[in-house]
Nucleic acid binder design. Structure first.
Length: 336
DNA sequence: ATGGTTTTTACTGCGTC
DNA sequence: GACGCGGTAAAAACCAT
């Protein structure tokens, strides 16, 4: 309601201004937009006038041009009579960011009155009721849009915090959209689903982040993320293989400032471990961490268990247990 | 809910710098 | 004495059923 009031006032203002334009266009000097009068630095008179047609600010008394090349914010079209002005005018209510749609959607008043305040006939009343219903339906679609926008913002934020590349964000957005379209949202938080989408996307892209890392940058609890993640994966039938420990290796290695050689060695350890089937059931992160540690020993590129446990978010005990297994597997393959 | 497996927590002892 | 490391037992977390 307030929107429509504002629309009229702005419209009228614009129309008045155009009327000014028109009447004074014929007389050589145009003089409009009186609202912007300042003091002239040359003659001191208060008659600086911005001339939007020529893009200048000019002193009306002495003729000093104060500013040039400003932007003409007036209409780019010309009208020759008032009905044409109405036709060509494209201005509406000012937009505001406070409303999700910037105030551009339509409201239908709740009162059963017409524009003159008279009550409507019962047929008209029914019609309006139907219109309200439909309008509301469209608006709920709008609400999905808004929802989406917020979620995408959230995904973007978390992705940058985790240093995930654009294609992962892209995938995450797609997953989220699908979740939204399949009505997976009701009963779950936007953030939860957004986080889960990102988690899934990261894993699908082969640059997995552990649930803990994800939790750190999300506003949602770990449990909820895990729950929502499982749900989304199941409902959307996403095919996500268990994370490959090798995928964590480069990140850990670079966080620890290890040489390429060490990184390669860690990979190799994991490969042989895989062949031996030592890895099943164990946490991939733990395995990766252990491999990095073991490799650092083998290549004399020493890091402590503590350091590895820090960057991998895994306990030292787990590293110890795993890296023994890794080394055993390595031995067995050398002496069959 | 339960039971089996894995991970974590907390603590201890040993060796080295 | 602090630190790195290894080991252990019990608690907690996780997962499939």
């Amino acid at each position: 309601m307030t929107g429509s009031v504002r629309r009229f006032t702005t419209d009228n203002a614009r129309v008045r201004k155009q009327a000014n334009d028109q009447s004074e266009r014929d007389s050589e000097r145009t003089k409009h937009e009186q609202d912007e009068t300042l003091t002239c630095p040359e003659c001191g008179s208060e008659s600086l006038v911005s001339d939007s047609e020529h893009g200048e600010t000019v002193c009306d008394d002495c003729g000093l041009v104060v500013e040039e090349d400003e932007i003409d914010r007036g209409p780019e079209w010309r009208a020759f009579n008032s009905s044409e002005k109405d036709q060509k005018s494209r201005v509406g209510a000012p937009t505001t960011n406070m409303m999700h749609d910037k105030g551009l959607s339509t409201n239908i008043g709740w009162q059963n009155k017409d524009a003159y305040g008279r009550s409507l006939s019962s047929r008209q009343r029914e019609k309006m009721q139907r219109l309200r219903t439909w309008n509301e339906r469209f608006r709920t679609r709008d609400s999905k849009e808004r929802n989406l926008k917020q979620a995408l913002g959230e995904i973007d934020r978390m992705a940058s915090a985790l240093g995930l590349p654009d294609n992962v964000r892209e995938t995450a957005s797609v997953i989220y959209r699908r979740a939204l379209n399949d009505d997976l949202l009701p009963g779950r938080s936007i953030e939860g689903v957004a986080t889960s989408s990102l988690y899934a996307a990261a894993r699908m892209a082969g640059t997995p982040r552990s649930l803990d890392e994800i939790t750190n940058v999300s506003r949602v609890e770990k449990d909820e993320i895990a729950r929502t993640y499982r749900y989304v994966v199941r409902e959307l039938k996403l095919e996500i293989q268990p994370a490959d420990p090798e995928q964590y290796v480069p990140r850990f290695a670079s966080d620890l400032g290890l040489a390429d050689e060490t990184e390669r060695r860690a990979r190799q350890l994991l490969k042989t471990a895989k062949k031996q089937g030592v890895h099943s059931g164990k946490s991939p992160v733990g395995l990766a961490a252990a491999a990095v540690y073991a490799a650092s020993l083998l290549t004399n590129d020493k890091v402590t268990q503590n350091e590895v446990s820090e960057v991998a978010n895994i306990s030292e005990v787990t590293i110890r247990n795993r890296y023994h297994e890794l080394l055993e597997a390595e031995e067995q393959i050398q002496t069959p």
